[in-house]
Design a protein around this nucleic acid. Structure first.
Length: 853
RNA sequence: GGGUAUGUAGCUCAGUUGGCUAGAGCGCCACAUUGACGUUGUGGAUGUCGGGGGUUCAAGUCCCUCCAUACCCACCA
């Protein structure tokens, strides 16, 4: 035999993957075909190892693509890697820190080159991991997010938006992390519930005496106040509107204004307005044309706009100092405990400061509207379906998007500003130059880069070489976008908007969102908790196939779930089971076996082929609707319970070589998307069809089975099951069976004897012993007297249960409404059930009589 | 405050358009045994399908309500 006793994945996986690559298995064939299936892999960050989420993603996508390839489609799984601007910079900065340097020691060009090299090194690492996971990607189409075509596409999109007036530059509040020195999109800010304090500060009227008290959690920002606002309907305060107050600690007078945004119930009903450091206040300032005074700089320190004593203090220090001075001067009315949520940098935890900064923005409204329209027209199917409405709601509330980042690593923004006029910006792609000359004027390069998600938005079509590429023409829109629920908003939404904007079509026909994989106890995995599970360790321990099957075994779209290693164990055992089925086949079919025509002869042959026929349809139906776990479970039970436990056992008595071989072949094919390595390894070893690759064979078609014969095998099964049950229950060892002459038992007696572990079957007219109840052919187990009393008791209990079941069925059929309203098939089914139940009861009665006689 | 999920066996979870006598894996109990496999085989036990109400001939599945949990969004002067 060529196959060793136990399947050891590491002995085969690398060779098998190499075989696929060599034979270009993953490059789509039939180039002209309209019948395609395409997925573009969400590009993992090229700055480290793959995590479990990537493992899950690749398993799901690879299953979908391999399945569709077997179904005869032009199938493409396109791989890529992400430069992940900010993420990568952070990782690289940590590396730099080890050598005692920081990014500020290098120019942008130097830094860019260094990070590029760093990422290039990591790419090899992660490509190896793709291979380990069995991901059947077309490496010839590999794309990196900083490849020229991706950058060009980003510039094309930016230019189109620029020309259509969707891009604007403005001084807006941005979410600024002073530690990383960059702004974040709203969606990137992490809010945490924080116990803080609410401070009440008195602002005296400039003239005429009296005062207004405002409440604030951030007293230090008062240094930048430019107004106090009250609600127009606030009877208590409305009289102050139009007057001015003297801002404590400064010598500035600021107006009292009326605005709807004020909540009369909160605090005192009067709000200090700090347009430069609060998003709401910014909007109020816009409406009332108030000045904006920045008092906090990009390093998080108080700047020169504030009185000298506070300058240079960081925010926390300034707060203490301001409070101290306010108290000393009698302006601090009171302090209350107050819970509120505060934005933090998701990387370093620094409190995010809303700061004024010139940034590039996209006017999202027209983009969002198109996306909403497409979603409402069901142009994209969602798994789980509820995510669609969630996305629509998000898009409806979408604000303009700040796309510029103050980081070193990323795609430079192709914009230059006039040396003379800071308002004069031009679009130009010559970003490798510090400055350029246009029409005799000098322009300087914008030092900023794009938010990663800006270029990622074009991913589905940029990777396929839109607009002229063959890839685009054949594979767009993508069949599926499969990714994590957590990036529905930042990524999926943008791909939809950008796809519609640039190509006029939705970028994909369906979206499948998988949930987060948590640790064994349902906690989120994180490096800081130290509960991160590395997929490569799992692959090494259980094998790649076991990892894939184990990780998708509990998959349900959209929901988080804990990592369950017992599923991997089960999957490994399953792979080994399949392996041993192949060993058995190899053993009984011989080394030189060649596949031929399979003609079913026995009841078992018809039965297994019928089951196989159902399986091929059911697995197709599941995978077409992305029910991965259900499809896997069906396969598992077919192979293990039907094929191994019944058919192979039966084949030991009566072998039909071609049927056995065909069922194994079909099992290998259907299972291949889930367990590509072990199935291909078996196929290559058996060599039943020289030189063929399992991965590119065709989905099995099963025909010509006889249902009657298949049912006969099921009759044998229920007979055997009952004998096994009784043998176990009554502690019988190798009992004898007496049976009336019947076709079923007569022609299958040896099979029944073996499967049921009988000593012997005797054909005889009615006799004593234990009457089998599930058997259509009258048969009795010969037992000793001592066993009979035991059995009678059990039989009595069983009769009572049976009578109850019959009563239930009778009652249901006696219900006129049921008989009238339920579908005929359902009613017929009930009738049949009742008939069977009565038949069984009769047999029980008969059995009891005989035992008592 | 708004929203979305989730709650089914000891554990982790399936359960598609209502037809269910509610399933799987692991675990548990008993037994078996080796000419494919101990990563094995055979048999078994275990559930007020979160609580309550409703619609229906029929509800784990649909509706309402309450409880619990998780996540997302907004706001928090």
């Amino acid at each position: 035999m060529k196959l060793p006793k136990t399947y050891k994945p590491s002995d085969y996986e690398a060779d098998i993957y190499a075989l696929w690559e060599k034979s270009r298995t993953f490059e789509p064939k039939n180039r002209d075909s309209d019948d395609y299936y395409s997925i573009v892999v969400p590009p993992p960050n090229a700055n480290g190892d793959l995590h479990l989420g990537h493992g899950l993603t690749l398993a799901l996508e690879d299953i979908a693509v391999r399945y569709n390839r077997l179904k005869g489609k032009a199938a493409l799984l396109l791989p890529g890697a992400d430069h992940a601007g900010f993420e990568t910079q952070v990782v690289y900065e940590k590396e730099l820190a080890k050598t005692g340097k920081s990014r500020f020691d290098f120019s942008r060009e130097e830094l860019y080159q260094q990070i590029w090299d760093f990422v290039a090194k990591n790419r090899e690492n992660y490509e190896a991991q793709f291979r380990s996971l069995g991901a059947g990607v077309d490496w010839s189409r590999y794309v990196f997010t900083l490849d020229k075509k991706i950058v060009d596409q980003a510039y094309t999109t930016f230019k189109k938006m620029w020309e259509e007036g969707l891009i604007y530059r403005g001084e807006r509040l941005v979410n600024f992390c002073s530690h990383h020195g960059t702004a974040f999109a709203d969606i990137e800010v992490e809010y945490k519930e924080t116990k803080g304090k609410l401070y009440y500060i008195k602002y005296p009227l400039t003239s005429g005496g009296g005062e207004l008290t405002v409440a604030t959690t951030r007293p230090e920002t008062m240094l930048g106040d430019t107004a106090v606002a009250v609600h127009p309907d606030d009877k208590k305060h409305v009289k102050y509107v139009g007057k001015t107050v003297r801002l404590p600690l400064t010598n500035r007078d600021i107006p009292v204004i009326a605005d709807d945004m004020v909540d009369i119930e909160f605090g005192t009903g009067a709000v200090k307005i700090t347009p430069a450091h609060d998003p709401n206040d910014f909007e109020v300032a816009e409406r009332h044309d108030l000045p904006r005074i920045s008092v906090i700089d990009y390093e998080g320190k108080i700047n020169h706009e504030a009185p000298e004593v506070y300058q240079g203090l960081d925010v926390e220090e300034a707060r203490k100092q301001v409070l101290k001075n306010l108290a000393e001067q009698g302006f601090l009315a009171k302090t209350e405990a107050h819970k509120h949520s505060v934005g933090h940098c998701y990387k370093c935890g620094t409190v995010i400061q809303p700061l004024l900064r010139e940034q590039w923005f996209i006017d999202m409204k027209p983009l969002a509207e198109k996306a909403i329209e497409a979603l409402k027209a069901n142009k994209i199917k969602f798994y789980p379906s509820g995510k669609k409405d969630q996305l629509i709601r998000y898009l409806e509330g979408l604000k303009d998007w700040n796309i510029s980042r103050q980081i070193a690593w990323g795609i430079p923004i192709p914009a230059f500003v006039s040396a003379e006029n800071s308002e004069d910006w031009i679009f130009d792609e010559r970003v490798d130059r510090e400055s350029i000359e246009v029409d005799g004027k000098t322009y300087h390069r914008d030092p900023d880069v794009f938010d990663t998600w800006f270029s990622s938005g074009s991913w589905p079509y940029a990777t396929l070489d839109y607009p002229e590429g063959e890839g685009y023409k054949q594979f767009y829109p993508l069949s599926l976008m499969e990714t994590g629920t957590d990036i529905l908003y930042p990524w999926v939404s943008r791909m939809i908007m950008f796809g519609l904007y640039s190509t006029g079509e939705v970028p994909f026909k369906a979206v499948y969102l998988h949930g987060l994989i948590q640790d064994e106890h349902g906690a989120k995995m994180s490096k800081s908790k130290g509960n991160v599970i590395n997929p490569m360790d799992q692959v090494n321990e259980y094998g790649s196939d076991a990892f894939r099957m184990g990780i998708i075994a509990t998959e349900a779209a959209g929901s988080n779930r804990p990592f369950d290693s017992s599923k991997l164990v089960g999957a490994r055992n399953f792979a080994n089971k399949l392996w041993n089925i192949a060993r058995y086949a190899e053993d009984v079919l011989g080394d030189d076996f060649i596949l031929g025509k399979a003609v079913p002869k026995t009841a078992a042959d018809h039965w297994i082929l019928t089951k196989l026929q159902h399986l091929t349809g059911a697995v197709s139906a599941d995978l077409d609707e992305y029910r991965f776990a259900e499809a896997y479970e069906k396969l598992y039970h077919f192979v293990w319970d039907y094929f191994a436990d019944w058919y192979i056992e039966a084949s030991k008595f009566s072998l039909n070589a071609q049927v056995l071989a065909r069922v194994l072949e079909a099992s290998l094919i259907i299972l291949h998307p889930f367990a590509p390595f072990v199935t291909e390894t078996i196929w290559q070893t058996l060599k039943w069809e020289h030189g063929t690759i399992l991965a590119v064979r065709s989905w099995p078609k099963v025909a010509g089975t006889d249902t009657k014969q298949a049912q006969q095998f099921e009759a044998i099964q229920s007979l055997v099951n009952e004998i096994r049950f009784l043998s176990n229950e009554l502690g019988l060892s190798k009992p004898r069976l007496h049976a009336e002459v019947s076709e079923l038992i007569h022609s299958n007696s040896e099979l029944i004897r073996r499967l049921a572990r009988l000593d012997d079957i005797t054909e005889t007219p009615a006799t004593s012993g234990i009457r089998l109840i599930n058997s259509s052919a009258p048969a009795w187990l010969a037992v000793e007297k001592s066993v009979i009393e035991d059995y009678k008791k059990r039989l009595g209990e069983r009769r009572t249960e049976q009578q109850k079941a019959i009563a239930t069925l009778e009652k249901r059929l006696a219900n006129k409404a049921y008989v009238d309203k339920a579908p005929k098939t359902v009613v017929d089914e009930t009738k049949q059930q009742l008939e069977e139940a009565r038949g069984q009861l009769d047999k029980m009665t008969e059995s009891e009589k005989r035992l008592s006689a």
